[in-house]
């Protein structure tokens, strides 16, 4: 008998947890953010959209590489180039 009572209590708790958010209704409902595709833009993290400081190479929120850019023309760089493939600027001090 005792196992059945315990099981019913467990089942009751489960049902309560599932039903409670539905019963709470729309009063507590928050709209879902629209499924917008994140887009890489200057100064913003391509993954989470956080605004980045110019010297942040990685997004401090999600760790996405901010991407190296040519100081002359702004072209995205892989990091190994010695000259910018876009404008030919010599990339001193890069890796």
């Amino acid at each position: 008998m005792l196992p059945i009572i315990i099981f019913l209590l467990m089942a009751g708790l489960t049902v309560f947890m599932l039903v409670y958010p539905l019963w709470q209704g729309s009063s507590a409902a928050r709209p879902l953010p629209a499924a917008a595709a994140p887009r890489a833009s200057a100064g913003k993290c391509a993954t989470c959209g956080r605004a980045l400081e110019p010297d942040e190479r990685f997004c401090p929120q999600c760790g996405t590489p901010a991407g190296l850019r040519c100081p002359q023309c702004g072209r995205a760089l892989a990091g190994d180039e010695r000259f910018c493939p876009g404008c030919g600027t010599k990339l001193e001090g890069s890796r």
Binding site: R57, F58, P60, L68, P71, E92, G93
Partner: peptide, 10 residues
């Protein structure tokens, strides 16, 4: 983050 600035210049 602190050491990132020099590469951003290059």
């Amino acid at each position: 983050r602190r050491s990132a600035s020099d590469t951003a210049e290059g």
